[in-house]
């Protein structure tokens, strides 16, 4: 499934034009992105939570050369699926 399928779903269900529907799908993901950029989490009940986590710097190793390198502190995005979604997908 791609963004185009979501655009079609909006077009069929909400009755906006294709062009508007495309803009709206883009808008929703942009709003989510803006929030995550601020380090704030997104909670979608029935689906899951997107959480920004702070990672401390650590020493890693290049698996090919065995060379040690410092992996800098960073922020990463994780997704925690809701129990509802987990149960729905358990036996797919």
């Amino acid at each position: 499934m791609t963004k185009a399928d979501l655009v079609n779903a909006i077009y069929e269900r909400v009755g906006f034009s294709k062009k508007e529907s495309a803009r709206i799908v883009e808008l929703v993901f942009d709003l989510i992105k803006d929030t995550l950029e601020k380090g704030e989490k997104i909670k979608i009940s029935g689906f899951g939570n997107f959480v920004v986590r702070e990672k401390r710097s650590r020493i890693g190793r290049n698996p090919q050369t065995g060379e040690e390198i410092e992996i800098s502190a960073r922020r990463v995005l994780t997704f925690k699926p809701s129990q509802v979604l987990r149960n729905q997908l358990k036996s797919v």
Binding site: M1, T2, L6, A9, I10, V14, G46, L89
Partner: peptide, 24 residues
Amino acid sequence: IVNTLFDRMTEALTQGDRIEIRGF
């Protein structure tokens, strides 16, 4: 709009389909 988006995504996963949202 918001419900349709997440419902459709859930549906896709239920069918074993992979979801790819460019830029996300």
